[in-house]
Every structure is written in structure tokens, then in C-alpha cells.
Simulated assay, not measured.
Amino acid sequence: MNFFTDLMAIDPKVKPNAAFFPFMGALRDAAGGILMVVIILSVIALIASAITLAWAKGAGSGRMSDKSASILLWVLVGAAIAGSASGIIKWVTNIPLGF
């Protein structure tokens, strides 16, 4: 046995307690508000980049078309990550987050 396996065998019996601090509810509400702002800004950026992409395709501007398509894809990826962040955290940590 080595140090790391001996260390992993120790169970300190410490469990996450979200009710211990009185500000946890406000922190959860703030995180939800920030998530809503991110989603709204993502929708606005998605609409703007889609309009720019359509305009650039119609005008024949290849460089603007490439940039707006890139922005469109990055906004979709960012929105997907932001929207699934709490589910990913719950899955990874197995901590009940209240949903």
C-alpha cells in the first residue's frame, strides 16, 4: 500500500450541507438570474448573427459570412453549455441541487 491508497481509504464523513449558510438561497437565486441573462443575451446574439449571415450571403461577402457563421456556432455552443451547467454539475458531483 502506498500513501495515496491509504489516504483514499479514510472517510471523514463530511457531507455537503447547503442549508448551513443563510445566503445559499440568495446565491442560488443569483446564479439563476445570471443564467437567465446569459440565455437572453445568447438569443439576441443568435438573432443578430443569423440576420448578419443572411445579409452577408445575399451580398456575396464571403469574409462576413464566415465570421457570422462562426459567431452563430459559438453562440449555440455557449448557450448549450450555460443551459446544461447545473445538470452537468449535478451529474458529476451527485449533489442534489433542488431540482
Rank of each mutant, 00 (worst) to 15 (best):
V43R: 01
F21D: 07
A31F: 07
I34Y: 11
A9W: 01
W55A: 13
A82C: 10
K15G: 00
S86C: 06
N2D: 12
G33H: 04
I88K: 01
A82M: 08
L97Q: 09
S70H: 08
I34M: 11
M8S: 08
I39C: 11
F99A: 15
S70G: 15
G25V: 09
P12A: 00
A80V: 07
A26T: 14
K67F: 14
M64L: 11
A69S: 12
F4S: 08
G98I: 07
I89P: 00
G58D: 06
I44K: 08
A18N: 05
L97I: 11
G98L: 04
I47D: 10
K90I: 02
G32S: 09
G83F: 00
A85T: 14
F20W: 08
D6T: 14
A31C: 07
L76I: 13
K15A: 13
T93E: 08
W91G: 07
R28V: 09
L46T: 13
A19V: 05
I40K: 14
A19T: 10
I39S: 10
G87H: 03
P12L: 06
D29E: 08
A50G: 09
M8V: 04
A85E: 09
A31H: 05
I81H: 04
I39Y: 04
I47M: 14
G98N: 05
I71N: 01
A31V: 10
L27N: 05
L35F: 08
A31N: 07
V37H: 06
S84M: 12
A59T: 02
F23R: 08
V38A: 14
I81N: 02
N94D: 15
